[in-house]
């Protein structure tokens, strides 16, 4: 967690997928301070997206962050996807689905609430 699901009408090249995964990981971690090992990116291709969309980002992320922070992450990811995929930002949809951290187990332990990562990492070094 977060899990970013990138859905496309067609296919992104292998290079574009790798770049997008790296960009999303960079953006998410730079803004939230979350460890990189938390960030999952999955690509779903050949989806019959709504007519006004060629690419869609569904961000399932830990709840509890400010609207401003979530908006900044969205803006940067949409801009990054526009750059990588050459799909105009107007044709890129984005939705956030917040999930309580206490509902997720990664590395065999419950995830920390946003902002409590440092303490959590110190306690559970193996999953960092």
């Amino acid at each position: 967690m977060p899990l970013y699901t990138i859905s496309t009408r067609g296919e992104l090249s292998a290079e574009a997928k790798a770049k997008a995964a790296m960009m999303i990981t960079d953006v998410h971690c730079a803004h939230t301070g979350a460890p990189r090992t938390f960030v999952q990116v999955v690509f779903s291709e050949h989806l019959p997206l709504q007519d006004d969309m060629d690419l869609h980002v569904l961000a399932s992320a830990r709840a509890g962050r400010t609207q401003q922070l979530n908006d900044t992450i969205e803006q940067d990811i949409v801009q990054g996807m526009e750059h990588i995929s050459s799909i105009p930002s107007l044709k890129i949809g984005y939705e956030l689905f917040p999930v309580p951290a206490s509902w997720v187990m990664e590395g065999g332990v419950i995830l920390p609430e946003p902002g409590e990562e440092a303490e959590w990492l110190e306690k559970h070094q193996h999953s960092a």
Binding site: T5, L49, E95, V99, V104, M105, E106, G107, G108
Partner: peptide, 25 residues
């Protein structure tokens, strides 16, 4: 242990997630 993630979501939230997921189509 780092290759398995379990997300035990409340069932109403799973339904909501599916709704959002289908809403993009």
């Amino acid at each position: 242990v780092n290759e398995i993630i379990v997300n035990a979501m409340n069932e109403d939230m799973v339904a909501k997630y599916m709704q959002i997921s289908q809403g993009r189509l």
